[in-house]
């Protein structure tokens, strides 16, 4: 009896679930995926970049200044990808 009652409640909820709500939910989840996926690539890139830079600095400390500058610029360039993902997120979610 209670199972039937629950099924009836679910059917009633589904009937009140409008197209606008479905669109809003899809937009929110797409925005979340866009931001999350856009942060994965730069994360891997920065990890690889910094790992190689630290190896280079540990092996050859006299060139550390040059490597640090390259690393800083590399991190900033890689981070631009995450920023683009963030901009897509705010445009999908809030506009």
């Amino acid at each position: 009896m209670s199972l039937l009652h629950t099924a009836a409640e679910l059917a009633q909820e589904a009937a009140t679930y409008t197209a606008a709500e479905a669109k809003a939910n899809a937009g929110a989840s797409s925005a979340g995926y866009a931001y999350g996926l856009a942060a994965i690539g730069p994360g891997i890139g920065i990890g690889y970049l910094v790992g190689q830079a630290v190896t280079a600095m540990a092996r050859q400390p006299e060139s550390a200044g040059m490597v640090r500058t390259t690393m800083f610029l590399g991190i900033a360039f890689t981070e631009a990808l995450a920023l683009i993902g963030f901009v897509v997120f705010i445009l999908l979610k809030f506009v």
Partner: peptide, 25 residues
């Protein structure tokens, strides 16, 4: 502005970076 400023500043700064042992910055 976020994207344009970030990328624009980085590309503009590349003109002034030396990246040599004598001048690492």
């Amino acid at each position: 502005t976020l994207v344009v400023t970030h990328l624009g500043l980085l590309f503009w700064e590349l003109r002034y970076v030396s990246l040599s042992l004598a001048h690492p910055g």
